[in-house]
Amino acid sequence: MDAKAFQEFAFERLLNEDPASHSLALLGTLPATAGDVPQRLPAILRVERTPLSADFPRHLSSGLVQDYSWLFAWFGTRSEIPDVKISVIFPATEVHIRKYTKQEILMVHETPEIYDRIVKPYILSFPPSRTLWVDDLLSGKSEADRILYKDEASDYGYIILPDMKWDMTTVSALYLVAIAQSRAIRSLRDLRKHHLGMLKSIRRESLKIVREKWDLLEGGIRLFVHYQPSYYHFHVHIVNANQSGYLGSTVGQAHLLDDIISMLEIDIDDGSSILEKMTFTYGLGDQHGLFEKMVAVQPELPE
């Protein structure tokens, strides 16, 4: 989407303001055409302040700051220092709107029985079209030039590419993602001991990529898996280990890939896996599609 398109954005309301990430989530509309009929569809703009470059201090004495009021500053237009990064979700569905709306978090417990009764049907209710963009990535239909590594094995293959959250420049904010080829692995619960080869390969190739491309040593990245994830197609987040302020890497949502590998290594070869039998505890926002049902069943749990 080019800059001209943003002039057509009609703001409706603020969904969220996050001081930790210096970002805003804005709901509005953008023009679209269905056949020959012009219309406006919901759109979300996530506006995030970009990190300051390492050479920022030398600009302080060269006219960079054009105006100031108390502790605020407005910067002049300089191509080497973008002021903000804008992410566009268009057309935005009700699910997207709920996701980006400020939420009250409650910790919930998910037993294997609750997973089978509530969570699994919820996951299966999503049509394949919800992750069509993932299929496009895996097939090379979109962003083929951004893929850093590809293992094409149908059951255990994966791709590694930069996450859209990353500007591809600020190494301290490095953010890659590994996405499994198989549709059968929807979440952490679906992992089995026979997936160890894939998981170890993701770890090995991620370390190799960041060492060769960005000179990060072993131990310089954090690899983790979300539960609940933002979309139900198995993927691993790969971020700079020194990255701070990213709420998605907090306890109650992120599970270290190394810990997952260790659990599967000591798991039994046949039968229910350890990840099937575990009770997971995680934070769930009040806008999440599982929130009401999960909160309702919490009193059923034994103390």
Results as ranks from 00 to 15, higher is better:
residue 161 L to S: 10
residue 253 Q to E: 10
residue 159 I to A: 01
residue 182 S to H: 12
residue 242 N to Y: 14
residue 180 A to T: 05
residue 223 L to E: 05
residue 264 L to Y: 05
residue 238 I to S: 04
residue 234 F to T: 10
residue 164 M to R: 15
residue 176 L to D: 06
residue 177 V to G: 06
residue 267 D to Q: 06
residue 182 S to W: 13
residue 199 L to E: 01
residue 270 D to F: 07
residue 168 M to N: 14
residue 245 G to Q: 04
residue 155 D to Q: 10
residue 187 S to A: 11
residue 191 L to A: 09
residue 156 Y to A: 13
residue 259 D to P: 03
residue 230 S to V: 07
residue 156 Y to G: 11
residue 176 L to Y: 02
residue 168 M to C: 11
residue 183 R to H: 15
residue 254 A to K: 09
residue 232 Y to T: 00
residue 222 R to V: 12
residue 252 G to H: 00
residue 205 E to R: 10
residue 228 Q to W: 05
residue 240 N to A: 15
residue 239 V to Q: 03
residue 175 Y to L: 01
residue 197 G to Q: 06
residue 165 K to I: 00
residue 220 G to T: 11
residue 167 D to K: 01
residue 223 L to G: 02
residue 236 V to K: 01
residue 204 R to G: 02
residue 200 K to Y: 12
residue 236 V to R: 00
residue 236 V to P: 01
residue 211 R to E: 11
residue 211 R to N: 10
residue 221 I to R: 04
residue 237 H to Q: 08
residue 144 A to G: 07
residue 233 H to W: 07
residue 247 L to R: 15
residue 169 T to Q: 04
residue 224 F to G: 02
residue 262 S to P: 04
residue 195 H to K: 08
residue 217 L to K: 14
residue 209 I to Y: 01
residue 216 L to K: 07
residue 252 G to P: 11
residue 150 K to E: 03
